[in-house]
């Protein structure tokens, strides 16, 4: 165990945390759930002089939904906490699924959504559904806050556009449009307790004529970053849904993937699974949206 020595700072406010980040900028990392960071420190894969814990910073741990703003996930909100919120289960089933099947029970109880994004692993399970929901990341530094669309957040494996001195204080997910559906599916070698080898999320809604309105398709573990499949989205949008259209969109998503061969799966398998899972999540989304349309239509 090559644990290096480091100083642990436990600020009691956001401004203290930002000060500490600034003060130790030469060698500092943020500690939220610690589920990615601590194992790296333990095996010596990461050496850092200062850790700034966000555990004691008030106001960052909440997850709340309101119809105007949508879902707001605080910077230290836990994966399990998000999975358990009734509104998340009801309105963001793809995110709820990601937060309830990824990693292990223990990790979901400690790990945070913000950490999952900030770690910027291509396999980040929350990334694909959050991309499909058009989530925005609020990054705060000493000068103020900025909102980054999640689609512009990832810069490469382990890299994001966060600047030194910035903290993710919130992730905001807009409220789903009416008559919409969303889903996330993932594959891994083990059925449970495993890292994602391929993941695909989608969201879509139906307009008054039953045509596809708002379509999003996003993948994990098949490119250097979590990926939006723009071509597939464009292909779907404005069209009347049908098997043939969903097939073509799924093929387009597979074409957009840039998978690699590694010990978790071959590139060819990953690419093909993007197609299979895309087709499946799109069908699930459509079924949800259609059933809502029927219910809402009936109510009107």
């Amino acid at each position: 165990m090559a644990t290096s020595h480091f100083a642990l700072h436990q600020p009691q406010s956001l401004s203290q945390a930002l000060d500490l980040l600034e003060m130790h900028r030469a060698s500092v990392r943020l500690l939220a759930g610690g589920t990615d960071l601590v194992p790296k420190l333990k095996v010596g894969a990461l050496k850092v002089a200062n850790l700034v814990s966000l555990q004691g910073v008030p106001g960052l741990g909440a997850v709340a939904f309101d119809e105007g703003q949508g879902l707001v996930i605080g910077g230290t909100a836990r994966l399990a906490q998000v999975a358990a919120l009734p509104e998340v289960k009801r309105l963001y089933p793809g995110l709820a699924h990601a937060c309830s099947v990824m990693a292990t029970t223990q990790i979901r109880n400690m790990g945070t959504v913000a950490g999952n994004l900030a770690n910027a692993a291509p396999s980040a399970d929350t990334a694909a559904p959050l991309l499909a929901y058009d989530a925005r990341v609020t990054a705060t530094n000493k000068k103020g806050s900025r909102d980054i669309p999640l689609a512009q957040f990832f810069a490469g494996p382990g890299l994001s556009v966060l600047e030194p001195g910035e903290i993710i204080t919130a992730i905001t997910v807009p409220p789903p449009p009416p008559k919409s559906g969303s889903a996330y599916q993932r594959l891994s070698a083990r059925s449970q307790v495993d890292i994602c080898a391929v993941g695909v999320a989608a969201s879509l809604s139906l307009d008054g004529q039953g045509r596809l309105a708002h379509c999003r398709l996003a993948c994990a573990s098949v490119a250097p970053t979590p990926l939006r499949c723009l071509e597939a989205e464009e292909m779907l949008s404005g069209q009347a849904p049908g098997d043939d259209l969903l097939d073509r969109a799924a093929q387009a998503a597979a074409a957009a993937a840039k998978p690699i061969d590694d010990m978790r799966a071959s590139a060819a398998y990953r690419r093909q699974m993007v197609e299979v899972l895309s087709r499946r999540v799109l069908a699930t989304c459509l079924a949800q949206a259609a059933s809502l349309a029927q219910a809402q239509g009936g109510a009107a």
Partner: peptide
């Protein structure tokens, strides 16, 4: 190459 249980896929109780 796979030197942790993340990538050495031993089934778990849940499997």
């Amino acid at each position: 190459l796979n030197t942790s249980f993340l990538d050495y896929k031993m089934p778990t109780a849940q499997d």
